[in-house]
Amino acid sequence: MMTGISLAAIVNVLLFTFLVMTAIAIVRVRHLFAVAMLSGVFSLLSAGLFVALDAVDVAFTEAAVGAGISTVLMLGTMALTVTREKTTKRSPVLPVFVCVVTGAALVYSTLDMPAFGTAQAPIHEHVAPDYIARTPDDIGVPNIVTGILASYRGYDTLGETTVIFTAAVAVILLLGSFSRKKQKRTDKE
């Protein structure tokens, strides 16, 4: 028991250390190529943390989306705009003050939270055990997350899919590439 806890704790502490280091590096680095890569690293590390916290589906998505697609999109944006951040003349005092105050308020609110990993926490007492108990009979698929996502809460997922569709329509409207390409082709001809 003792070794199990300490091993998990060591992995968590290592991941946390890397996460904080990456975050600080993102603050300090001005070369946007490095920033994009570091944000990919941050996503990959958080995916590792999600695996340690039993959220395999989430880890899977974060690794594919955060470390893959969003890095590519950031590099694409950089290629179209600038690669270096300019130094700002504003003083960092006010942002630091805002962050410290907000952070202190958040930390104060965590003091009331149940300790990490307790099975008696309020979050585990209401609907969650019900879903776990009923999924084998109601749905019959082994992955409870898929069962909730696609069947119990199918209505929500329809909404999410529509949001993604809408975002893509907005991006295509903004960048207008689909029609522009045809124009270029006719110009060449």
Binding site: L53, D54, A55, D57, V58, I123, H124, V127, A128, Y131, I132, I144, V145, I148, L149, R153
Partner: peptide, 8 residues
Amino acid sequence: YSNPLPHV
């Protein structure tokens, strides 16, 4: 099992 609701 860990709580599946936050995962969803």
